[in-house]
């Protein structure tokens, strides 16, 4: 089964949750990443997501396999949006089902953290003042210019 995927249309949360329902599981944890209206002091109006899907899917499946091996959960899925998103849209959904709640919470946290840091997915913010910028890229480029010795390892695993 495909556990990590991309979607260019709004997510069907009920269907995703239903796909993880299991008689052996007493706990289900989900995380939803939403589009919010501000970031780093700027008023955000819209987001655009772009992904190198071939590699991101491979890496996403790997993250979920790691979570299953590490936390002993029953099942997990993650879906990430690509394309243009409006405020309050769900950008990413992670769901984990497990016999008990503790491993479900921990595995869910692990998956979203690793997905954010490891997968080749990019986010462009559009601001109220008409500007736009690729998150972690524009400031990075400016910082590289001003402070060549600065450590830029933040966005990489």
């Amino acid at each position: 089964m495909t556990r990590f995927s991309f979607s260019s249309t709004p997510l069907d949360i009920a269907a995703l949750q239903g796909s993880l329902r299991d008689v052996t599981c007493g706990g289900f944890v989900a995380f939803e990443g939403w589009v919010r209206n501000h970031n780093e002091g700027q008023r955000v109006t819209q987001l655009e997501y772009e992904a190198f899907e071939a590699l991101a899917v491979k890496e996403g499946e790997q993250v979920i396999a790691e979570a299953r091996a590490r936390f002993g959960i029953e099942n997990a899925r993650c879906v990430h949006r690509v394309g243009t998103l409006d405020l309050t849209d769900v950008a990413v959904w992670v769901g984990v089902s497990a016999p008990h709640r503790d491993e479900a919470f921990r595995a869910c946290r692990y998956i979203i953290d690793e997905v954010k840091h490891r997968l080749p997915i990019w986010k462009k913010e559009h601001y109220e003042n008409g500007d736009s910028g690729w998150v972690n890229c524009e400031r990075c480029a400016a910082a590289a210019h001003d402070h060549p010795e600065h450590d830029h390892a933040h966005a990489h695993a």
Binding site: Y49, H80, K116, P120, I121, W122, K123, C137, A155
Partner: peptide, 10 residues
């Protein structure tokens, strides 16, 4: 070859 800029998923 793909050069991968700093990522920002989620």
């Amino acid at each position: 070859v793909v050069f991968i800029p700093p990522v920002a998923g989620g």
